[in-house]
Each structure stands twice: as structure tokens, then as C-alpha cells.
Simulated assay, not measured.
Amino acid sequence: MNAPDRTERLLRLAAMLTAVMASAALWWPWPAQASQRIKEVASVQGVRPNQLMGYGLVIGLDGTGDQTTQTPFTAQSVNSMLQQMGVTVPAGAQMQLKNVAAVLVTATLPPFAQPGQQIDVSVSSIGNAKSLRGGSLVATALKGADGQIYAMAQGGLIVGGAGASAGGAKVQINHLSGGRIPQGATVERSVPTPLLVGEFVQLDLSSGDFATANAVAKAINGAKGEGTAQAIDGRVVRVRAPQDSAQRVAFLAEVENLALTLEKPAAKVVLNPRTGSIVMNQSVTLAPCAIAHGSLSVTISSTPQVSQPGALSGGQTVVTEKNDIQVTQQGGQVINVPASAQLADVVKALNALGATPQDLLAILQAMKSAGALQAELEVI
């Protein structure tokens, strides 16, 4: 085969490979950039859950209820319930109610909940009951912050855990003084919502940010027309919505699913001194700096010693403690931390220090004071 034929054959093969790759590009989905929607950064004012709470009794326990001598309110509650049923308890009677426990019942009323719908409830002991396993909640009224009854709860508890005791020893797995009742409450009253009142609907951002509020208003105006939305401040966006209820619901459904183009978030580092947790976002950067961090450890060991008196001395045997204290200090080397423009570089630079999370808490605060950490520090 001569050179021109070989060249022509290679050109045809290259053309075939290009066609196959182009065809594969049409069929194989390329990864798209993740985008946020308005519903993920804002919520409609008035569309919110409400917390409910009530006091009740759990019955049917296997001797693991409240000790009425230490929790007199349990006996009072049972006495009041029996009186409502026409049962009179003799005055001064000592009731031993080992199968009853006083509990606090909580639930969350979702937005737009209507009478007849069922919601989950949580039941927690407020006395000294050992376990709520196998108990049933007596009908309990759940009230809102205004004192009105919005739901009634009743049913058998689901308690995740186990406990056993024998010969003075006790083993307990998980928590036995609280449980849940799936679909255990029935809604009796709905909460009015201002969603359909007025010409405007207010969107509340989950975090105050002027750039996000401006982006939300710009996305709505681009889809629904200029002047439809207006950013009032860094957290509130006012939107003009149709007056008809059906049209307003459809309008809000479309608005919530509009895509947003957001700017990079403000650089922030969150520190938790209790657990030693450190979380930073992608905007955190470092300026060049030098760090030296040493560690100081103090070890105290106590060894019991017996002092035995001599024979016929009349003394007593005494147990004393011998304490040994050791102080160890390791000098830290000065490490040059280069400038880092990406989160991965920041993590790599901090790992090079070889410090524990507790040490990093102090290092990051010192770097912030020195101006080397380009981020806001938040301690939780």
C-alpha cells in the first residue's frame, strides 16, 4: 500500500470515529449543573406548620408506670378522668397506679390541614415511669398557642427499645420513656391562612441576603412580566398574584419552580466547641501566613496505698492516695501556610498542620484575628 492510499484510509477512519463520537454525544446525557429553585430558598408567608401540645395519660403498662407517691399529679389526673365517667373515688383513698403514666403529647399541624385528616404525634413521659412500651394513650386534646383545640390524639404507642433487669443488674437499649403514634391524632379545626387575602403574596427567604432577594425578583419578572415582583429588603420579596384562588395556586406553583442563578455564598466557617466540629463552605480562602501551635498535656495518676501500723501500737490501718502529676509540652514548629483560593486547597493546608479539631478551633480564630482567614466565623 502506497503512502497516498494509507493517508486516505486514515482520513476515512478518523471521519468514522468522529461520527461515532458525535452520535454517542447525542445519546449519552452530559452532567448538568445543579440549579436551585425559588421553593428551595424562599417560602410563602402564612404557609407554615403550627405546633400543638396536650397533657394525657398512657394506660395498660406492665407495672412500669409512675410511682404515684412521687408523682401525685398522675393520681389526680386519673381521679378527674374517673369522675367525668361517673366513677367516684372515696376521699383519702391511696391509689397505686403502676400501669398508668402521665405524658406530654406533641404534634405538628401541617399547613392547609383540614378537619378529619390524621397527623403523627409524639408521646413523652413527664413522671418517673420506667417504660411506655405496650401502653395506649387515652383521648387527649391538643391545643395551639391560642389555647384552642385543633386535634384529638389517641392510640397505641410504638416504643423503639428494650429493657431487662435481673439480680440487681439492669440493661437498657434505646429510650423507653418516649414513643410515637403514627396517624394518632385527628384534626378537628383548620388554621386560617392569609394566602388568598390581598393583591400581593409575600415570599420570605430562608436566609437574609440582598443578592438572593434580587435574583428571586429578577427570575419572577423574567417569567411573569416586569413589575410582578419587587425585593423589599434582603429577606422579603413581594409578588403581585391573581385574585382568583385557582389561578393564584397555579401561579405560585409556577413561581416556586423557577430556576435561580445565585451568586457565591458569603464565606463562613462554623465552629462547634462542644463536639470539635468544623464546617466551611466553598467560598473560604486563605491568605499567606505562618503558624506555630504547641500542645500541653497534664496527666494525673492516683495510686491507693495502705499504711499498716506496727504490732501492738494501737494504730489503725489507713488507706492513702499517692498522686503523680506529669506535665508534657511539645513545641510546635512554624509552618508556612500558602495562599489558597479553593476549598480543597484550604483543607489540604489545614491538614498539613497535623492539629486535632479542638486545636483547629483555636488556630482558625487566631488566623481570623491575623487577617489570614477570609471568612466569617460563627460559633454554635
Rank of each mutant, 00 (worst) to 15 (best):
F112V: 10
V105C: 02
T68L: 06
K143E: 11
T68S: 11
G60S: 02
A141F: 01
A107L: 09
T68Y: 07
Q114A: 12
G60D: 03
P49M: 07
D62F: 14
D62V: 11
S125C: 05
G144L: 08
S131D: 05
V123G: 00
L142N: 04
N79F: 10
V105S: 00
G116V: 10
F73D: 13
S77I: 05
F112N: 08
A75M: 12
G54R: 02
V58K: 00
A139V: 14
Q84L: 11
S124Y: 08
L132M: 06
S77G: 11
G86Y: 10
A91M: 12
G60K: 03
V100M: 03
L52F: 07
K130D: 12
Q67H: 14
I59L: 07
G127L: 09
S77K: 14
Q83K: 15
V123I: 11
A91R: 15
P72K: 06
F73E: 15
Q84G: 07
T74C: 06
G144A: 10
T106N: 11
M85K: 13
V121L: 05
V103A: 00
D66N: 09
V105G: 00
P49Y: 09
A102V: 06
K143D: 03
L137G: 01
Q94A: 12
P72Q: 08
M85I: 07
S122Q: 13
Q117Y: 09
Q51D: 15
N50M: 08
M53L: 14
A93E: 13
L142H: 01
V103I: 10
D146C: 07
L82N: 06
P111Q: 08
G65Q: 05
G134L: 04
A93W: 09
A91G: 12
